[in-house]
Design a protein around this nucleic acid. Structure first.
Length: 554
RNA sequence: UGGGGCGUGGCCAAGUGGUUAAGGCACCGGGUUUUGAUCCCGGCACCGGAGGUUCGAAUCCUCCCGCCCCAGCCA
């Protein structure tokens, strides 16, 4: 993959200028998720941008958990996020960072701002604070507690910390400007009381810093030079800069915002994804239909496909909706190059080749991949009885060769990597259902062209009846049947596709895949890309369809 | 409505006064092919609108229109 002529984005332009001017010598970025859910495809873009910017400039990227709100956070999420970032192929600089590691420092800085007359303890409750904040057209008004003595605020803050004050009755606020046209500057809350244990600091704190009071300082402590986030934080930037300017920080980070990734036919809101899990609309965060990293992984999407897709996205300030087809292109492109080929008959019907001796069997050696010698070879068992897909057979002899390139009664078709065969008759059960096709091979056609006068209509896949493994295949369709499930008046739940999962049992896969490893990628020829699902206690052989092959015909 | 941000083909986008207006996805033709896949070739825009500045504008100015974000003690 060469990206030599890939245009450079606006953040790289800024970095280039900073490097040139000597403002920074080493570029440091960070990926700062709150551990309140699993990572999804939207985060993947952010991860690629942040780690990518650091790597391309010889710098480093931190993985930092923004765990400032114990109410929503959980260690399960921390572990899942670490696993996902690693799986995506990224390595962070140094140890994993946590906002909670800086709680003491943050507290000291809060005291500093109070003593500087730039912060105060406010006793307005949530509702009153909203009233005092003003509206889009009206400026806010000062809190009656705004000018209380610093010593009093200092004492009250200490009591809040110790747990002596009731939740919701007091907050620490920055004293900025209640008349600012930017709401974030109207004396924002720096600390709120939450008498709740934190997954990492335990019962030590009864107050927790807000995002705004924590983020820039976290960046500064870690020496982050370019704090890259998504567009919705643009309005927080002035506040970010205010804290950076008014606190004695060890470095001066700068914030830049780019457009987050939106994909059609899916949602990328942790809250809603969590709802899908909690309300059991899907089997879990790693359900193969989920746009989560873990879901995509279980679905069979490779990390490199996700990376290539993210790299194809622009880092810009427009907020568009990327077509799912673009993601699918990169999924297929990667799998086409890297997935071993195999054959799986999903809707099997028995074919008996009457002119093939009953006791005879052969083994054909075929490439693991059509143009990748490094993928070696595999062997296919062949015998008198094989399975082909019911959809690859028709009794309608009027079907044109162009329209139906498969097996038709009385006509020839090529078995992929094997003989050309002919269908002669069908055997039905009591209900009239075809249970067997009787035909014949055309001798000496393995690896050779058809003899004069015989023309195969096409090539179909097959599997030996004697030597094949039974398996179950799960086919997935989009989780939502509306391009923008989030838009409109109805809930996104109204647009869940009731047919997003199809389970097909009784499939026959070539014997070599009986012990496939979960996570290995295969192309089932003429069908699509598949991966073995997480192996359960029953050990059942289940393949998840990652994505079908393209088909433009008909 | 106050503030911030954005508008280039169906979608994502390069472009920073002089280009035949990159590229990818999608789509439409055609070729190769023991996967109706892959691969290969070809096709596919006057830049939200209206004025203006200029020899020359997607790029500069003015006005207008549209979309997104901000009124959590969420991040």
């Amino acid at each position: 993959m060469t990206d030599t002529d890939k245009p450079i984005n606006f953040i790289q332009h800024v970095i280039n200028a900073d490097l040139e001017a000597g403002h920074v010598t080493k570029v440091v970025t960070r990926f700062p998720p709150e551990p309140n859910g699993y990572l999804h495809i939207g985060h993947a873009k952010s991860i690629c941008v942040n780690f990518g910017l650091a790597a391309e400039n010889g710098g480093g990227c931190n993985l930092r958990f923004d765990d400032t709100n114990p109410e929503k956070e959980d260690e399960e999420y921390v572990n899942a996020i670490i696993e996902d970032v690693r799986w995506l192929g990224f390595e962070w600089q140094g140890d994993i960072c946590y906002a909670s590691n800086y709680f003491d420092q943050l507290y000291t800085w809060a005291q500093y701002l109070i003593s500087e007359g730039k912060a105060y303890i406010c006793e307005l409750n949530a509702e009153q604070m909203r009233e005092y904040r003003g509206t889009l057209t009206q400026v806010g008004k000062n809190s009656p507690y705004r000018d209380r003595p610093a010593s009093e605020s200092l004492d009250l803050l200490e009591q809040m910390k110790l747990g002596a004050i009731d939740e919701g009755t007091m907050t620490l606020r920055a004293k900025i400007d209640m008349e600012s046209p930017n709401f974030n500057m109207r004396d924002p809350v720096m600390y709120r009381i939450k008498k709740m244990a934190h997954q990492r600091t335990g019962d030590k704190w009864n107050i927790y810093p807000s995002y705004d009071f924590a983020h820039g300082q976290e960046d500064a402590i870690e020496g982050v030079t370019h704090s890259v986030c998504t567009l919705e934080f643009a309005a927080n930037r002035p506040l970010y800069e205010w804290f950076v300017a008014n606190l004695p920080l060890p470095s001066t980070p700068r914030q830049y915002e780019f457009g987050r990734l939106n994909l059609n036919y899916t949602i990328t809101s942790k809250r809603k994804l969590k709802q899908l899990v909690d309300e059991k609309h899907v089997a879990g965060w790693d359900d193969p239909r989920m746009p989560t990293i873990s879901g995509l992984r279980r679905r069979g999407v490779s990390a490199s496909a996700i990376r290539e897709f993210c790299d194809s996205l622009a880092v810009a300030k427009t907020d568009g909706v990327v077509d799912m087809a673009q993601f699918e292109h990169f999924i297929r492109d990667d799998l086409n190059n890297n997935a071993r080929r195999a054959m799986c008959v999903m809707n099997p019907v028995l074919v008996t080749l009457a002119n093939y001796e009953a006791d005879k069997s052969e083994s054909f050696t075929v490439p693991g991949h059509p143009n990748r010698d490094d993928m070696g070879e595999r062997s296919l068992a062949f015998g008198r009885q094989i399975f082909i897909d019911r959809n690859d057979f028709s009794e309608d002899t009027t079907l044109s060769r162009k329209k139906f390139k498969r097996l038709v009664i009385g006509d020839y078709v090529r078995l992929r990597s094997a003989y050309i065969i002919r269908a002669d008759e069908v055997i039905r059960d009591g209900a009239g259902e075809i249970i067997e096709i009787v035909g014949a091979i055309v001798p000496d056609t393995v690896g050779k062209d058809a003899p004069e006068g015989i023309k195969a209509r096409g090539v179909i896949h097959w599997v030996s009846a004697l030597e094949s493994a039974d398996c179950t295949v799960k086919i997935y369709d989009r989780l939502f049947n509306k391009a923008a499930p989030d838009a409109g008046d109805e809930s996104f739940l109204e647009h869940i596709n009731p047919e997003s999962l199809t389970v097909i049992s009784g499939c026959k896969v070539e014997a070599g895949l009986a012990n496939a490893t979960a996570g290995d990628h295969y192309q089932f020829e003429r069908e699509g890309y598949f991966t073995r699902d997480i192996v359960t206690d029953s050990g059942e052989l289940v393949f998840n369809c990652t994505i079908g092959l393209r088909d433009n015909w008909k």
